[in-house]
Amino acid sequence: MKNRRLYSKVLLPLASLLVIGTAQAQDVDTSVIDRAQSVIGETNEAAAASQEEITRLSNSSSSLFEEFKVESDNLEALLVLNANWRRQIAAQENDLETIAESIAEVRNVTQELPLLMNRMLVSMDQFVDLDMPFHLEERRNRIEFARNAIDNPNVSTAERFRQILVLYQTENAYGRTRETYPATITIDGVERDVDMLRVGRVALVYQTKDRSQTGAWDPEARQWVQLDAAEYRTAIRDAISVASGLIAPEIIEVPIVAPE
Protein backbone atom coordinates (compact mmCIF):
# COMPACT_ATOMS: atom_id res chain seq x y z
CA MET A 1 0.00 0.00 0.00
CA LYS A 2 2.85 2.28 0.84
CA ASN A 3 4.63 1.47 -2.45
CA ARG A 4 1.53 2.09 -4.43
CA ARG A 5 1.29 5.58 -2.97
CA LEU A 6 4.97 6.20 -3.78
CA TYR A 7 4.37 5.30 -7.45
CA SER A 8 1.42 7.57 -7.57
CA LYS A 9 3.49 10.44 -6.28
CA VAL A 10 6.17 9.79 -8.94
CA LEU A 11 3.80 9.39 -11.87
CA LEU A 12 1.95 12.50 -11.04
CA PRO A 13 4.93 14.83 -11.64
CA LEU A 14 5.78 12.98 -14.89
CA ALA A 15 2.28 13.41 -16.20
CA SER A 16 2.44 17.07 -15.32
CA LEU A 17 5.70 17.41 -17.27
CA LEU A 18 4.19 15.74 -20.34
CA VAL A 19 1.21 18.07 -20.28
CA ILE A 20 3.46 21.07 -19.91
CA GLY A 21 5.81 19.82 -22.74
CA THR A 22 2.92 19.30 -25.11
CA ALA A 23 1.59 22.72 -24.41
CA GLN A 24 5.04 24.24 -25.01
CA ALA A 25 5.46 22.29 -28.28
CA GLN A 26 2.24 23.71 -29.56
CA ASP A 27 3.55 27.20 -28.91
CA VAL A 28 6.88 26.61 -31.00
CA ASP A 29 7.19 28.35 -34.48
CA THR A 30 7.15 25.61 -37.23
CA SER A 31 8.80 27.91 -39.84
CA VAL A 32 12.21 27.13 -38.37
CA ILE A 33 11.68 23.44 -39.04
CA ASP A 34 10.50 24.18 -42.57
CA ARG A 35 13.56 26.29 -43.28
CA ALA A 36 15.80 23.56 -41.88
CA GLN A 37 14.15 20.97 -44.07
CA SER A 38 14.50 23.31 -47.08
CA VAL A 39 18.21 23.75 -46.37
CA ILE A 40 18.60 20.01 -46.01
CA GLY A 41 16.83 19.48 -49.34
CA GLU A 42 18.98 22.05 -51.09
CA THR A 43 22.07 20.47 -49.59
CA ASN A 44 21.01 17.05 -50.83
CA GLU A 45 20.35 18.46 -54.30
CA ALA A 46 23.74 20.18 -54.32
CA ALA A 47 25.36 16.95 -53.16
CA ALA A 48 23.58 15.02 -55.92
CA ALA A 49 24.67 17.62 -58.48
CA SER A 50 28.22 17.44 -57.16
CA GLN A 51 28.13 13.67 -57.39
CA GLU A 52 26.92 13.88 -60.97
CA GLU A 53 29.74 16.32 -61.80
CA ILE A 54 32.24 14.06 -60.10
CA THR A 55 30.93 11.09 -62.09
CA ARG A 56 31.07 13.10 -65.33
CA LEU A 57 34.61 14.28 -64.62
CA SER A 58 35.64 10.74 -63.71
CA ASN A 59 34.21 9.39 -66.96
CA SER A 60 35.84 12.21 -68.90
CA SER A 61 39.15 11.51 -67.17
CA SER A 62 38.93 7.81 -68.05
CA SER A 63 38.16 8.66 -71.68
CA LEU A 64 41.08 11.10 -71.84
CA PHE A 65 43.35 8.48 -70.30
CA GLU A 66 42.30 5.93 -72.90
CA GLU A 67 42.90 8.46 -75.68
CA PHE A 68 46.28 9.29 -74.20
CA LYS A 69 47.18 5.62 -74.07
CA VAL A 70 46.16 5.10 -77.70
CA GLU A 71 48.10 8.17 -78.85
CA SER A 72 51.10 7.08 -76.78
CA ASP A 73 51.06 3.67 -78.49
CA ASN A 74 50.75 5.36 -81.89
CA LEU A 75 53.70 7.63 -81.06
CA GLU A 76 55.83 4.67 -80.03
CA ALA A 77 54.96 2.86 -83.27
CA LEU A 78 55.83 5.96 -85.30
CA LEU A 79 59.15 6.30 -83.49
CA VAL A 80 60.04 2.69 -84.30
CA LEU A 81 58.95 3.16 -87.93
CA ASN A 82 60.94 6.38 -88.17
CA ALA A 83 64.02 4.62 -86.81
CA ASN A 84 63.64 1.89 -89.45
CA TRP A 85 63.29 4.50 -92.18
CA ARG A 86 66.43 6.26 -90.93
CA ARG A 87 68.37 3.01 -91.16
CA GLN A 88 67.03 2.37 -94.65
CA ILE A 89 67.89 5.90 -95.74
CA ALA A 90 71.41 5.50 -94.35
CA ALA A 91 71.83 2.21 -96.24
CA GLN A 92 70.51 3.81 -99.44
CA GLU A 93 72.90 6.72 -99.02
CA ASN A 94 75.77 4.24 -98.74
CA ASP A 95 74.48 2.49 -101.87
CA LEU A 96 74.35 5.83 -103.67
CA GLU A 97 77.98 6.47 -102.76
CA THR A 98 78.94 3.01 -104.02
CA ILE A 99 76.97 3.55 -107.23
CA ALA A 100 78.59 6.95 -107.74
CA GLU A 101 82.03 5.35 -107.34
CA SER A 102 81.05 2.59 -109.75
CA ILE A 103 79.83 5.15 -112.29
CA ALA A 104 83.13 6.98 -112.04
CA GLU A 105 85.00 3.71 -112.53
CA VAL A 106 82.77 2.78 -115.47
CA ARG A 107 83.46 6.17 -117.01
CA ASN A 108 87.18 5.55 -116.70
CA VAL A 109 86.85 2.02 -118.06
CA THR A 110 84.71 3.27 -120.94
CA GLN A 111 87.40 5.76 -121.86
CA GLU A 112 90.13 3.11 -121.70
CA LEU A 113 88.11 0.27 -123.24
CA PRO A 114 88.66 1.16 -126.94
CA LEU A 115 92.42 1.12 -126.45
CA LEU A 116 92.18 -2.19 -124.59
CA MET A 117 90.07 -3.79 -127.32
CA ASN A 118 92.48 -2.71 -130.04
CA ARG A 119 95.41 -4.11 -128.07
CA MET A 120 93.54 -7.39 -127.60
CA LEU A 121 92.91 -7.69 -131.34
CA VAL A 122 96.53 -6.92 -132.18
CA SER A 123 97.68 -9.52 -129.65
CA MET A 124 95.29 -12.11 -131.06
CA ASP A 125 96.40 -11.38 -134.60
CA GLN A 126 100.02 -11.93 -133.60
CA PHE A 127 99.09 -15.06 -131.67
CA VAL A 128 97.40 -16.65 -134.68
CA ASP A 129 100.41 -15.90 -136.86
CA LEU A 130 102.73 -17.57 -134.35
CA ASP A 131 100.41 -20.48 -133.55
CA MET A 132 100.06 -23.78 -135.37
CA PRO A 133 98.67 -23.24 -138.89
CA PHE A 134 95.22 -24.77 -138.50
CA HIS A 135 92.00 -23.12 -139.75
CA LEU A 136 93.99 -19.98 -140.51
CA GLU A 137 91.44 -18.44 -142.84
CA GLU A 138 88.56 -19.04 -140.43
CA ARG A 139 90.47 -17.66 -137.47
CA ARG A 140 91.65 -14.56 -139.33
CA ASN A 141 88.12 -13.91 -140.60
CA ARG A 142 86.94 -14.04 -136.98
CA ILE A 143 89.53 -11.43 -136.02
CA GLU A 144 88.51 -9.23 -138.94
CA PHE A 145 84.85 -9.50 -137.94
CA ALA A 146 85.68 -8.31 -134.41
CA ARG A 147 87.78 -5.46 -135.81
CA ASN A 148 84.90 -4.33 -138.06
CA ALA A 149 82.58 -4.34 -135.04
CA ILE A 150 84.97 -2.04 -133.17
CA ASP A 151 85.09 0.39 -136.08
CA ASN A 152 81.30 0.36 -136.58
CA PRO A 153 79.68 3.34 -134.78
CA ASN A 154 76.31 1.57 -134.76
CA VAL A 155 77.65 -1.23 -132.57
CA SER A 156 77.51 -0.65 -128.84
CA THR A 157 80.59 -0.84 -126.67
CA ALA A 158 79.19 -3.88 -124.88
CA GLU A 159 78.66 -5.71 -128.18
CA ARG A 160 82.16 -4.82 -129.38
CA PHE A 161 83.70 -6.21 -126.22
CA ARG A 162 81.49 -9.31 -126.44
CA GLN A 163 82.79 -10.06 -129.92
CA ILE A 164 86.37 -9.93 -128.65
CA LEU A 165 85.52 -12.18 -125.71
CA VAL A 166 83.94 -14.71 -128.09
CA LEU A 167 87.11 -14.58 -130.18
CA TYR A 168 89.30 -15.29 -127.14
CA GLN A 169 86.98 -18.04 -125.87
CA THR A 170 87.05 -19.77 -129.24
CA GLU A 171 90.84 -19.66 -129.42
CA ASN A 172 91.08 -20.90 -125.85
CA ALA A 173 88.81 -23.86 -126.67
CA TYR A 174 91.22 -25.07 -129.38
CA GLY A 175 93.68 -25.99 -126.63
CA ARG A 176 91.24 -28.47 -125.06
CA THR A 177 89.89 -30.29 -128.13
CA ARG A 178 91.04 -32.64 -130.85
CA GLU A 179 89.82 -32.89 -134.41
CA THR A 180 90.58 -34.18 -137.84
CA TYR A 181 89.74 -32.48 -141.13
CA PRO A 182 90.79 -32.52 -144.79
CA ALA A 183 93.18 -29.82 -145.96
CA THR A 184 95.58 -28.88 -148.75
CA ILE A 185 99.14 -28.04 -147.75
CA THR A 186 102.38 -27.45 -149.62
CA ILE A 187 104.94 -30.22 -149.19
CA ASP A 188 108.32 -29.69 -150.85
CA GLY A 189 106.78 -27.05 -153.07
CA VAL A 190 103.90 -29.32 -154.12
CA GLU A 191 100.30 -28.94 -152.92
CA ARG A 192 98.96 -32.18 -151.48
CA ASP A 193 95.53 -33.18 -150.20
CA VAL A 194 95.95 -34.56 -146.71
CA ASP A 195 94.06 -35.56 -143.58
CA MET A 196 94.99 -33.26 -140.70
CA LEU A 197 94.94 -34.23 -137.04
CA ARG A 198 95.07 -31.62 -134.33
CA VAL A 199 95.44 -32.60 -130.67
CA GLY A 200 94.89 -29.40 -128.71
CA ARG A 201 97.91 -27.26 -129.31
CA VAL A 202 100.23 -30.16 -128.55
CA ALA A 203 100.46 -31.73 -132.00
CA LEU A 204 99.42 -30.94 -135.58
CA VAL A 205 100.14 -33.82 -137.99
CA TYR A 206 99.09 -34.80 -141.48
CA GLN A 207 98.92 -37.88 -143.66
CA THR A 208 98.40 -37.97 -147.39
CA LYS A 209 95.35 -39.69 -148.74
CA ASP A 210 97.45 -42.57 -150.08
CA ARG A 211 99.27 -42.82 -146.71
CA SER A 212 102.58 -42.51 -148.48
CA GLN A 213 103.67 -39.48 -146.50
CA THR A 214 103.20 -38.63 -142.84
CA GLY A 215 104.43 -35.42 -141.29
CA ALA A 216 103.98 -32.87 -138.50
CA TRP A 217 104.31 -29.16 -137.89
CA ASP A 218 107.60 -28.14 -136.31
CA PRO A 219 106.83 -25.03 -134.17
CA GLU A 220 110.50 -24.18 -133.80
CA ALA A 221 111.38 -24.44 -137.48
CA ARG A 222 107.96 -23.01 -138.42
CA GLN A 223 107.52 -25.59 -141.20
CA TRP A 224 106.19 -29.04 -142.04
CA VAL A 225 108.57 -31.94 -141.52
CA GLN A 226 108.18 -35.52 -142.71
CA LEU A 227 108.06 -38.33 -140.17
CA ASP A 228 109.40 -41.85 -140.47
CA ALA A 229 106.61 -43.67 -142.32
CA ALA A 230 107.46 -47.01 -140.79
CA GLU A 231 107.17 -45.63 -137.25
CA TYR A 232 104.22 -43.21 -137.52
CA ARG A 233 102.13 -44.30 -140.53
CA THR A 234 99.88 -46.74 -138.69
CA ALA A 235 99.85 -44.73 -135.41
CA ILE A 236 98.76 -41.52 -137.17
CA ARG A 237 96.12 -43.36 -139.21
CA ASP A 238 94.68 -44.89 -136.02
CA ALA A 239 94.75 -41.49 -134.30
CA ILE A 240 92.88 -39.94 -137.24
CA SER A 241 90.28 -42.72 -137.02
CA VAL A 242 89.84 -42.14 -133.26
CA ALA A 243 89.43 -38.38 -133.73
CA SER A 244 86.90 -39.04 -136.53
CA GLY A 245 84.92 -41.37 -134.31
CA LEU A 246 85.44 -44.32 -136.67
CA ILE A 247 86.95 -46.49 -133.96
CA ALA A 248 86.68 -46.60 -130.18
CA PRO A 249 88.81 -44.14 -128.20
CA GLU A 250 92.23 -45.44 -127.31
CA ILE A 251 95.68 -44.15 -126.46
CA ILE A 252 97.17 -42.51 -129.53
CA GLU A 253 100.76 -41.84 -130.43
CA VAL A 254 101.63 -38.45 -131.93
CA PRO A 255 104.93 -36.62 -132.25
CA ILE A 256 105.29 -33.62 -129.94
CA VAL A 257 108.07 -31.22 -129.21
CA ALA A 258 109.16 -31.76 -125.59
CA PRO A 259 109.59 -28.55 -123.57
CA GLU A 260 113.14 -27.70 -122.61
Rank of each mutant, 00 (worst) to 15 (best):
R5L: 13
L12C: 09
P13E: 07
S16K: 09
S16H: 08
L17K: 12
T22S: 14
D27N: 11
V28D: 05
T30E: 06
D34R: 13
A36P: 05
T43N: 14
E45T: 13
E53W: 13
R56Q: 01
R56S: 01
S61P: 02
S62K: 02
E67P: 00
V70C: 00
E71W: 01
D73R: 01
N74R: 05
E76F: 05
V80S: 14
L81V: 06
Q88N: 05
A90I: 03
A91V: 02
Q92F: 10
E97M: 07
A100E: 14
S102A: 14
A104L: 12
R107Q: 05
T110D: 15
L115F: 03
L116F: 04
R119T: 12
M120W: 01
L121E: 00
V128A: 07
D129S: 09
L130H: 11
F134Q: 05
I143L: 14
A146W: 00
A149D: 09
D151V: 05
N152W: 04
N152A: 07
N152L: 10
N154H: 02
A158T: 11
A158P: 04
L165N: 03
L165D: 05
N172G: 07
G175R: 14
R176Y: 09
T177D: 02
D188W: 08
G189P: 01
V194R: 04
M196N: 05
L197V: 13
R201Y: 02
Q207R: 09
S212W: 06
A216M: 12
P219C: 08
P219K: 06
Q223T: 10
R233C: 05
T234H: 09
I236P: 00
I240M: 03
A243K: 01
P249V: 08
P249Q: 12
I252Q: 03
P259M: 04
E260L: 14
